[in-house]
Computed example of a mutant assay.
Amino acid sequence: MSSATLTPSLHDRFVHLAYDPGVSPKGGGLPGLDVLRSIVNSLNLFGIVAVVGALAVSLGVWAWGHHSGGHQAEATGKKGAVVSAGAALGLGAANGIVAFFSALGSQVH
């Protein structure tokens, strides 16, 4: 028996890597899924409310810095407003982003 027959060929290695374990998301598989969804929905709502507060404070700092001549406060207010808007976008689109990439990932074979 030669050593070439004991080592797997390159083709065999790729076939092993391409093995489909048959795992896919399934609703209702574990108890407590509804509770987990409720918790995540509540966290998302809490985040959105916090972003509204952060946006209000940032806009106030921006306005105060502009009218008082405080360029550092104005710049900080602008940054806070942009970050708050980005956070609101991310929180609002979180479900869609995850669904998009999950569907995209399920197409990989």
Rank of each mutant, 00 (worst) to 15 (best):
residue 87 A to Q: 00
residue 1 M to Q: 12
residue 108 V to Y: 01
residue 74 E to S: 15
residue 59 L to A: 12
residue 46 F to G: 04
residue 6 L to H: 08
residue 13 R to E: 11
residue 72 Q to L: 14
residue 5 T to N: 09
residue 94 A to W: 08
residue 64 W to Q: 14
residue 63 A to C: 08
residue 12 D to W: 04
residue 41 N to M: 06
residue 25 P to K: 15
residue 18 A to L: 10
residue 107 Q to D: 10
residue 66 H to N: 13
residue 67 H to A: 13
residue 73 A to S: 15
residue 48 I to W: 02
residue 83 V to R: 08
residue 109 H to C: 09
residue 39 I to A: 15
residue 81 A to E: 00
residue 41 N to Y: 00
residue 17 L to Q: 13
residue 88 A to N: 08
residue 33 L to I: 01
residue 52 V to Y: 05
residue 39 I to R: 15
residue 15 V to Y: 05
residue 76 T to V: 10
residue 4 A to Y: 01
residue 37 R to Q: 14
residue 75 A to G: 01
residue 15 V to M: 10
residue 29 G to Q: 07
residue 40 V to C: 05
residue 102 S to M: 13
residue 34 D to T: 00
residue 73 A to V: 11
residue 102 S to E: 02
residue 17 L to D: 00
residue 45 L to T: 10
residue 89 L to D: 07
residue 11 H to M: 08
residue 52 V to K: 01
residue 26 K to I: 06
residue 108 V to D: 00
residue 44 N to D: 11
residue 44 N to T: 11
residue 31 P to D: 00
residue 72 Q to M: 14
residue 89 L to M: 15
residue 40 V to N: 02
residue 13 R to N: 05
residue 74 E to L: 15
residue 63 A to F: 09
residue 102 S to Q: 13
residue 45 L to R: 11
residue 5 T to Y: 06
residue 63 A to T: 12
residue 90 G to Y: 05
residue 70 G to P: 09
residue 103 A to M: 03
residue 39 I to F: 13
residue 100 F to Q: 01
residue 50 A to S: 03
residue 54 A to G: 06
residue 82 V to H: 09
residue 43 L to I: 06
residue 72 Q to H: 12
residue 92 G to S: 13
residue 109 H to E: 01
residue 108 V to T: 09
residue 106 S to V: 02
residue 93 A to W: 05
residue 43 L to T: 02
residue 63 A to R: 12
residue 67 H to M: 15
residue 13 R to G: 07
residue 9 S to A: 11
residue 32 G to E: 00
residue 79 K to H: 09
residue 94 A to E: 04
residue 77 G to T: 01
residue 41 N to C: 05
residue 9 S to Y: 09
residue 45 L to Q: 12
residue 36 L to P: 10
residue 67 H to Q: 15
residue 103 A to N: 11
residue 68 S to D: 02
residue 47 G to D: 04
residue 55 L to K: 06
residue 90 G to Q: 10
residue 57 V to N: 08
residue 101 F to N: 04
residue 77 G to A: 03
residue 46 F to H: 09
residue 92 G to I: 08
residue 88 A to Q: 07
residue 11 H to I: 13
residue 105 G to I: 02
residue 51 V to R: 03
residue 71 H to E: 05
residue 76 T to E: 04
residue 42 S to G: 13
residue 103 A to F: 03
residue 100 F to S: 15
residue 24 S to I: 06
residue 68 S to E: 09
residue 18 A to W: 00
residue 78 K to F: 10
residue 90 G to K: 13
residue 19 Y to P: 02
residue 37 R to C: 00
residue 59 L to V: 14
residue 80 G to H: 00
residue 97 I to G: 05
residue 35 V to D: 10
residue 78 K to A: 14
residue 104 L to M: 11
residue 37 R to M: 03
residue 92 G to M: 03
residue 53 G to L: 05
residue 71 H to K: 14
residue 63 A to G: 09
residue 66 H to D: 13
residue 56 A to F: 01
residue 26 K to V: 12
residue 67 H to S: 13
residue 4 A to I: 09
residue 83 V to G: 08
residue 107 Q to F: 03
residue 103 A to L: 04
